[in-house]
Design a protein around this nucleic acid. Structure first.
Lengths: 340, 340
DNA sequence: TCACGCGTCGTAAACGGTTACGAAATTGAT
DNA sequence: ATCAATTTCGTAACCGTTTACGACGCGTGA
């Protein structure tokens, strides 16, 4: 055997820290850290039996070399790919900009953590299928059959949303609703409309609740409540336009979604109302392609994706279900103004 | 993660023809065919240097054992996964229902053919990135920089759409436009509006051209042309509503997209017009979630996906670029009627 | 008959990881 | 200081495939 001899550097330069060609392999990292490949594997995979200091050295070497484990090799060795299946309420078809953006971030995080996306969102109204090792559920309602199905089958999954007793991650929708209300209160508004999508969706309910309770706490009358069941810009447009045409002149509207906010702005504009001069509009999500000057409650998509894969790992590991609520912030831009 | 314990039964039984447990490997096939694994690999991969009779025996053994090569092992050995990158014009964000449905079908076909989806749609306005071996371009406009970029870089790709000189697949949009026009002609309409999305998109242009030329051929006046640049239901709604409010009373409207057709129907309805009694509406695409009674021009999504992967294989193989045009059919449902 | 070439095929070494096993080093108790 | 118990780590064997290389058998030309 060849004990790690300092003499090797003299002979051949091929054991250098930087890989001769192509991507760094586990062996490059081992050489750089001065340990064996076994140790590197253990350190990187958070296995026990490796000294903290050694682990740190390995980590440093790995990041220095931009080490990125080869998925094929890992799968081959593990005799099975850990794959995650994405399941959306109505397949790809109801893919809202929100989920689209989330998916984009998610796939990046998934790739980094060695997980592999097996199926693109699918399943239609049906149950999640396929032999994925874990699932991510998107757009599930409280009575979504997929939840019970997965629970009963004992398959690991994480819900993007909130549901009692199931592992899930979601923004703090209620706090977001409160933020919106407080913002409006601060600006002196008093006649306000609250527009949500399907009211039995948990997120919608939470945002609405936060909004109305904060309004009440501020001593304001209850907002008039409008709903556009499909949550689309067009739905929002029609429902708000109808309300406006009936003579109502709210000073502000809180749309539970950026998408719906765009519909609101269009409706107001078509009726000759200026935003924010005549009516303030505030949205929710902070979608990049929409947030062009829109005051909104921002969700942290990066965190959402990050926590989703963290929970995924926990689910795969059989940990106790945990539910994480992400903080949310208000971004004040150009669509809200003081009531005059 | 809990690795499944591999078969650890009888020691001696491992050289049998039928795999002890789990999937058959190349060694099982070799044993069954009475040759070595090297020969099996060569035979199955159509490499030269294997006798025809031997090849046949190997093939038979392989099918008998339902041999399915392990992707991870193959990728590891080849040092490269054949991966395809999906690139969409604006990342996921402009993911229309059309592309969503297409992607759903595409991923199924891709999986069947051993290709692997490397990246979910990404890139924003940027160029396709990543080390994918081939790309699928979605939503590209004639002047899309991605096309030139990929062409210059000599990377294999297929365009979902039509562009002179590049390998691509698309529905026969022009024929679809003609079909729509002929349908309207047959029903006796004469005052017709044509509503498209971004007019410089190839598909929009083709549909419009087919429609107007067929109308002209039928001896009808040119349609009044409306455009909703974002192609959204709301955009369609507003533009058609404005037109209707200006006093126009077309007897029929051809929306270049099912999505836009929904906006048209809503606009007509909000103005007290019955569909199809007062105005006929005809769409394009035949999206399942929309085609609820909508007369439309149907695209064959299955064929679209199938041809895409076929072209992908050709691209990978370095074949001459080929462009396929898929036939299209008119589905007459409840939103068109005879002009009265 | 011998050498040579060619077409077939088997052997073994990769590919880049994981992990069982045991050796070495460290610790603690006596 | 000695020895056992316990960490920590290195070695090597796998996972299933591809492919370079060499061995072998068989015709052919001399």
């Amino acid at each position: 055997m060849a004990p790690r001899s300092p003499a090797q550097e003299g002979a051949a330069a091929r054991t250098e820290a930087s890989p001769a060609r192509g991507r760094a392999t586990i062996r490059d990292v081992a050489a750089a850290a001065g340990v064996s490949i076994g140790t590197v594997s253990r350190a990187l995979n958070a296995r026990s039996g490796v000294h903290a200091a050694t682990r740190q050295r390995v980590m440093d070497a790995a990041t220095a070399l931009a080490y990125d484990p080869d998925r094929a090799a890992r799968e081959l060795s593990n005799r099975r790919a850990v794959s995650v299946g994405l399941s959306m309420a109505h397949g790809y078809r109801r893919l809202t900009p929100f989920f689209a953006l989330f998916l984009e971030r998610l796939s990046a995080h998934l790739a980094m953590s060695g997980l592999r996306v097996d199926d693109l969102p699918t399943g239609g109204d049906g149950l999640p299928v396929g032999d994925a090792d874990a699932f991510v559920l998107l757009g599930a309602h409280p009575d979504d059959p997929r939840i019970g199905h997965l629970l009963a089958a004992g398959r690991p999954f994480v819900l993007v949303g909130r549901h009692p007793g199931v592992r899930g991650v979601a923004a703090d929708d209620e706090a977001g609703g409160r933020l919106a209300a407080e913002h409006l209160l601060r600006l002196g508004h008093h006649d306000v409309v609250l527009l949500t999508g399907q009211p039995h969706a948990q997120a919608m309910a939470d945002r609405a609740r936060g909004f109305t309770t904060a309004l009440a706490d501020g001593g304001m009358a209850a907002p008039t409540r409008l709903v556009a069941d499909d949550g689309s810009p067009l739905g929002a447009y029609r429902v708000l336009r109808a309300h406006l045409e009936s003579g109502a002149r709210p000073t502000a509207v809180f749309a539970a979604t950026d998408e719906m906010a765009t519909g609101c702005i269009a409706a107001a504009g078509d009726l000759g109302l200026q935003v924010p001069a005549d009516v303030s509009v505030i949205g929710f999500d902070d979608l990049p392609e929409i947030g062009d000057g829109l005051t909104t409650v921002r969700q942290d998509f990066e965190a959402l994706a990050r926590e989703t894969v963290a929970l995924l790992h926990e689910a795969l590991h059989g940990d106790e279900p945990r539910s994480v609520r992400l903080p949310v912030t208000l971004i004040s831009r150009g669509t809200t103004a003081e009531r005059r």
